[in-house]
Design a protein around this nucleic acid. Structure first.
Length: 438
RNA sequence: CGGAGUGUAGCUCAGCCUGGUAGAGCACUGUCUUCGGGAGGCAGGGGCCGCAGGUUCAAAUCCUGCCACUCCGACCA
């Protein structure tokens, strides 16, 4: 993409409304524009990142055996009356009426809708287990939206719902999502620590929040310091195997959110305890028959009995992750995207736009990178070098290729790694191969 | 929902106290000189001063009401 033909409205100054770093950087990089409190438009650069994150989430969900569906944003109130949540949910639910004065709502979550789909089709234990997910916009009318896209009212969420015959089956479904989440966050370059979380009125120990540590996180968390050294890479997971030993081993290290942490009853000593702030990027629940029972989601067992299915739900905040990743990965100059979610792989900086030799060298590199299927953003603006460097550092692409007349005299361009700041000189002929090979 | 703020050019803000022709920097348009870390000159364009009402000869400025946004708190399957 040529920057002169792109839409990337970067800002030199920070808009006054943005208080935390990820929000500031997203506005400055021209990724989003606030439309109302907690409601954002996604501009081209931001949308690219959102889509990359979404695709990683999708791939890992599919790998775990879940199936993608797409449910609507607008739901009928009737289903929510069946589960009893229409009255319970409170003002956080955006309630609207259609032209016939029917009660509708903008979905804050989808347990009711998915349970309705499930119960309509599935009647036999033979059709279990099942896990359906979608990636859809949600709306929760928060009293106080803040932190940019990290706590918006409208947000993109992946929510999966598992259906099993009994607790043992549901536990396995839960474990599969647990492992899939580790793999998902790992691919995004994040260390997301699974922490025992509050299950609310349901009880039991089957709820984990996945938390990335960041100074500006909105919840306080407590964990064993050894978590810092744990490798959470969830590669090559055999989802049909018994995942319990792996998970038991991982979760043997203490990690709990504020509401679950009891300082008087903590299993590890103060010297081993890390107190930090975190951003919740995922949350998984087992909630048994809470919805299947009242909504009549029963299957027939081998013995011919009708049993309510055991369900779990599993959320990943896709739009929140965009902010979360920035919170976890930035410096004074701007964003530092992990390779897997960067909006472009490489930025190409022409230091002397209009100079024949420099232009042709850049055009050549640009064409070759495109042919090699490398996503390249070519800064072909007629602007000062400083402005180009500043913008390129701000938007945080993993690599920068810096082309100017000074280097070209010796057939050299500079290759800069954003993350380390390291610059190396590379011959003009080698640079495409170097970047493509990475 | 309680408390505290802020609304003036696309952005950052001054002007308001003490009423009297709407301002600066950046950004934008044209042009010239520059050009390896956010350049300089010249010439321009751009404003229901959040909205409504009131006071006054006169309101961005004073008064009242409303709206929006931000921060702290409570809330957050």
């Amino acid at each position: 993409m040529r920057l002169t033909r792109y839409f990337m409205p970067t800002l030199k100054e920070t808009p006054a409304e943005a208080q935390i770093i990820s929000h500031r950087l997203m506005l400055r990089a021209g990724m989003v524009r606030q439309s109302a409190a907690g409601i954002y438009s996604w501009l081209p650069l931001g949308l690219r990142v959102l889509k990359k994150i979404e695709e990683i989430v999708r791939e890992e969900q599919n790998r775990s055996g879940a199936h993608e569906v797409l449910m609507p944003t607008i739901q009928s109130a009737d289903l929510w009356r069946e589960s009893g949540r229409y009255d319970d949910y409170g003002k956080e639910m955006l309630r609207i009426k259609d032209r016939h004065d029917r009660d509708m709502l903008y979905g804050p979550t989808n347990e009711e809708l998915i349970t309705d789909i499930f119960r309509f089709y599935v009647k036999s234990y033979r059709d279990l287990p099942q896990n359906l997910y979608h990636i859809q916009w949600k709306f929760r009318d928060e009293v106080r939206p803040r932190f940019g896209v990290m706590r918006g009212r409208e947000f993109l969420m992946k929510d999966a719902y598992s259906f099993d015959l009994d607790y043992a089956g549901a536990k396995h479904s839960y474990n599969k999502m647990f492992m899939a989440y580790l793999a998902t966050f790992e691919r995004m370059g994040l260390k997301a620590i699974p922490m025992r979380a509050d299950t609310g009125p349901i009880g039991g120990d089957l709820s984990h929040e996945f938390i990335i540590l960041a100074e500006t996180g909105e919840s306080e968390v407590f964990c064993d310091k050894r978590w810092m050294d744990v490798d959470l890479g969830g590669n090559d997971i055999d989802y049909d195997s018994d995942l319990e030993p792996t998970i038991a081993s991982l979760t043997s290290l203490y990690a709990a959110t504020d509401e679950m942490h009891d300082p008087d009853n903590c299993p590890i000593g103060d010297s081993d305890l890390l107190q930090a702030r975190g951003v919740e990027v995922g949350h998984i629940f087992y909630f048994g028959t809470k919805y299947s029972e009242p909504m009549g989601a029963f299957v027939q067992t081998a013995e011919g009995k009708q049993e309510a299915v055991h369900m779990g739900s599993y959320g990943i905040g896709v739009s929140r992750l965009v902010g979360g990743i920035i919170e976890a990965s930035h410096d004074d100059s701007g964003i530092i995207w992990p390779d897997a979610v960067a909006p472009f792989d490489v930025g190409l900086i022409n230091l002397r736009q209009g100079d024949g030799e420099t232009d042709s060298a850049c055009n050549d590199i640009y064409d070759k990178l495109n042919n090699a299927a490398v996503d390249v953003l070519y800064d072909d603006r007629d602007d000062r070098a400083g402005a180009k460097f500043a913008d390129m550092d701000l938007i945080g692409l993993p690599w920068q290729i810096i082309v100017g007349p000074r280097g070209l005299k010796n057939g050299i361009v500079e290759l800069k790694r954003r993350r380390s700041g390291e610059k190396i000189e590379v011959s003009l002929d080698d640079v495409v191969a170097r970047v493509s090979a990475k």
